[in-house]
Design a protein around this nucleic acid. Structure first.
Length: 802
DNA sequence: AGCACGCCGACT
DNA sequence: GTCGGCGTGCTC
């Protein structure tokens, strides 16, 4: 007898193992590993994923049967099946969570609880709940506590019945198509017999006679013809002339025409890089390349030509890009080169669109995938190359479970598929550059810009001096003069400010009160456009206070500058300037990101003012000036990577200037003009920065000299959170080796987020063979307090220490 | 997660 | 005595 081992969609420690089920005879033929099923689990039904079909189970109790199939073919292929074990272990997360993150979000089932009233009653309270209906859907939010209690009582008395429904959200879009059942001759006969006033039917008959060779046509096409409606077609179907049927539609998120583009001529360094990478593709070895190329050195062309090589060998290609640089420019470039073979996966797509792109990949219709972090799980088969552009970017690390590093998953898939992984950046992460230094990765350099463009000239402006001498606020004299000059010459300007909103916070001048979020331990930010105070962590919003909530004083004002305020200031300083603002607030709506960039690209504005989302990937030939208004924001963070982040950001944003024939200038305004990261960004010398930063990391014992793990303990009660953090700390102290360094436990920089209090412990280690078992033990031990609100989270190689 | 079971104190 | 609070264990 065949049995199925199934992982259920219950993400807890106790259920993190397969459960054995009987396979009903009617599904024996179809059932395969990787399919989603509905199974009874406890007293309800849940979604599950088939992990194995076996002959002998290990469970001795009574087995239940699988309820139904949710898929006709596996959605988890062999590679993803194997990957899920590795991923769960590496990220300390539940395997079912890993499997579900690999799939488009519509594949996660929705659960519904239906309540059926078994016999009619005159009880008013009961009838209030059911509103005269026999079956209602249970929704705890819309019912009062008393009503929930009543329902529980009725259930005990067996007066109601509860049914659990697992809803598959993965529905493809269907469209109605129409086909003629008649031969050409019969169609003509019908046309003669039909009354002359049946105008609509005559139109349809004529259409099918004229286009007899086509097999079917969409009903929506026919109804666009004169007088023809859906009922006309229905009528003709009833007569037996036509057949209507449903066809699956792929939603196509990129419908506008795309201009075809062709491989460009490579310079010497690009050729060397392409040759090295394609040799690896040919030889099917899983080398990792680090492509270190200054901004504008033509890395994308190297990727595209390497991908082309993989396609020639009948293999597929995966190209990952950071969230914000998946610009229309990049999409057009790849689609223009590889046409319909390309599938795009990014956060701007609707759930349905993502699902459709996923299916195109899964069934082999798409051979090149371009996408953000989660695209690393694209179900491509026979991958020939994996590219990770801007490999240092933070968006490649998933911040919640499973906390995977895209780079590590890429390397795993590279090994599995016997293909190279190309990591590209102008400013590689120290970890990657260090591995290249040890020849673990193969270093490829593109030291020159294409067409020998000069790198932009970078000027550092000391804001302390500017304020002392001229009393300026956000715009120094030289930057302002340069902006005016560029506008007069009809060139464009990009300005970056690392803070959205109007100003950073509001404070009472009399008592020093700062308005904070009630859920998070963080000050609220003023948003002038919506006239609200907003929390950037949880989204909480409240009106702007007119007097101090603490002392009642009216002397309450705002400090710091956000994009909104700077926009106003700039407009006053240069009234003729046309400014476009781009930040999370102006790009929230779907497609607005693209619209803003299009308007700027078409020259409808001369200044683009934005947060760091403008630092990457933009390529506007008319931009000759870049201004960084406050280079220090990243530096001030209490994080050992702040220098690295500052250098990367400044280098990236500088690269936006002077990308065509015209030379570019960059102004960096700072209060720390002597800081090494800023000084080295001035010369754009990555290698010198790398050497300097490695020295600092070595001295302080930070990555890449040490590996790190962050353990976060949080609870709704601060004492419990602190107490548990201590327990965990002592356990680590007693079970890890002496060479390993433990930091903490400390309050997180933002103690309270969304009503939870956070404490953290950092582990720094070089070699720790018990690490996995020690950490797993901690997870197990803290599990019992989970329902009291305690959360212990483990993040291997975290990005942020705050 | 979602539920039953079992052990407690506070009531008709 | 029993209703209903919550802590604990289990789900193939």
């Amino acid at each position: 007898m065949e049995l199925a081992e199934i992982l259920v969609d219950v993400p807890t420690m106790q259920t993190n193992q397969p459960y054995t089920y009987q396979i009903p005879t009617f599904m024996k033929e179809e059932l395969q590993r990787g399919m989603r099923v509905v199974v009874p689990f406890g007293h309800r039904k849940v979604q599950g994923i088939v992990m194995n079909v076996v002959h002998h189970g290990t469970f001795n109790g009574r087995l239940k049967s699988i309820d139904s199939l949710m898929d006709l073919s596996p959605v988890i292929n062999d590679e993803m099946y194997h990957l899920s074990f590795w991923l769960a272990q590496k990220t300390f997360s539940f395997q079912i969570t890993c499997l579900l993150t690999m799939l488009p979000s519509v594949m996660k089932a929705k659960y519904q609880k239906l309540i059926k009233l078994l016999q009619p009653t005159h009880n008013q309270s009961i009838n209030d709940i059911f509103h005269g209906q026999k079956v209602i859907s249970f929704n705890s939010n819309s019912l009062s506590d008393e009503q929930i209690k009543l329902l529980l009582k009725l259930k005990r008395q067996k007066k109601i019945q509860v049914n659990y429904v697992v809803k598959n959200q993965a529905k493809s879009k269907k469209e109605i198509a129409v086909r003629s059942k008649l031969s050409k001759h019969q169609l003509k006969q019908a046309l003669e017999q039909i009354p002359k006033n049946s105008v609509a039917q005559i139109t349809v008959l004529k259409f099918f006679i004229q286009h007899y060779d086509i097999s079917s046509v969409k009903q929506s096409f026919l109804t666009k013809l004169n007088h023809v409606s859906a009922s006309t077609i229905k009528n003709m179907q009833d007569k037996g002339w036509l057949i209507r049927f449903k066809v699956e539609q792929y939603r196509n998120p990129y419908q506008r025409p795309i201009k075809r583009n062709y491989p460009l001529k490579l310079n010497y360094h690009q050729k060397v890089a392409v040759n090295a990478i394609t040799r690896s593709v040919d030889q099917q070895n899983s080398n990792v390349f680090l492509l270190e190329g200054v901004t504008g050195s033509g890395k994308t062309e190297v990727y595209l030509q390497s991908i082309q090589k993989a396609l020639i060998h009948n293999r597929t290609a995966l190209m990952l890009v950071p969230e914000i640089s998946l610009t229309p420019q990049m999409v057009n470039r790849v689609k223009g080169r590889f046409g319909n073979l390309v599938a795009i996966l990014h956060s701007g797509l609707s759930r349905g669109e993502k699902y459709d792109e996923w299916r195109r990949i899964n069934n082999g219709n798409a051979k090149v995938v371009v996408g953000v972090r989660s695209a690393i799980f694209a179900p491509l088969k026979n991958i020939g190359i994996i590219v990770m552009d801007e490999e240092h970017d933070d968006s490649y690390k998933q911040e919640d479970a499973p906390r995977y590093s895209t780079r590590e998953v890429a390397k795993w898939r590279g090994k599995y598929n016997h293909c190279p992984v190309v990591l590209g950046s102008a400013t590689p992460s120290l970890e990657s550059r260090a591995r290249a230094g040890k020849n673990v990765y193969h270093l490829l350099k593109l030291p020159e810009r294409i067409n020998h463009q000069a790198l932009p000239q970078i000027k550092i402006v000391d804001m302390r001096e500017q304020i002392a001498n001229y009393g300026v606020k956000n715009f120094s004299k030289p930057l302002l003069a340069s902006i005016k000059e560029k506008i007069n010459r009809h060139e464009q300007v990009v300005l970056m400010l690392n803070r959205r909103g109007y100003s950073s916070f509001i404070m009472c001048r009399d008592c020093g009160f700062v308005l904070k979020c009630p859920n998070c331990d963080i000050s609220l930010t003023l948003h002038m456009s919506s006239h609200t105070m907003r929390c950037h962590y949880c989204g909480h919003e409240e009106p702007i206070p007119t007097k101090c909530p603490n002392c009642g004083s009216k002397r309450i004002g705002h400090y710091g500058s956000g994009t909104e305020k700077v926009e106003r200031e700039l407009q006053q300083l240069i009234p003729e300037a046309k400014i476009i603002r781009m930040d999370v607030d102006t790009t929230r709506r779907k497609g607005s990101h693209e619209r803003i960039l299009n308007r700027f690209g078409q020259g409808k504005a001369n200044i683009l003012l934005g947060t760091q989302m403008i630092a990457k990937g933009l390529d506007f030939p008319n931009v000759t000036l870049v201004g960084v208004l406050n280079a220090d924001t990243a530096l001030q963070l209490p994080d050992f990577r702040s220098g690295e982040k500052t250098f990367q950001l400044l280098t990236q944003v500088s690269g936006r200037a002077g990308r065509a024939k015209k030379s570019g200038t960059v102004y960096i305004q700072t209060y720390n003009p002597d800081n090494y990261a800023i000084r080295l960004a001035e010369t754009q010398n990555y290698e010198r920065f790398y050497t300097k930063e490695m020295g600092i990391r070595h001295a302080a014992g930070y990555p890449p000299y040490y590996f790190t793990v962050r353990i976060t303990v949080s609870d709704l009660k601060e004492v419990r959170s602190a107490g548990e953090a201590n327990v965990v700390f002592h356990y680590l102290q007693n079970h890890l080796s002496d060479q390993t360094i433990l930091l903490g436990p400390t309050q997180s920089t933002i103690l309270k987020i969304k009503r939870r209090y956070y404490y953290q412990i950092i582990i720094k280690y070089k070699r720790e063979k018990n690490l996995n078992s020690v950490l797993s033990h901690i997870l197990m031990n803290t599990q019992k307090d989970f329902r009291r609100g305690l959360r212990v989270e483990i993040d291997p190689n975290p990005l942020k220490f705050i």
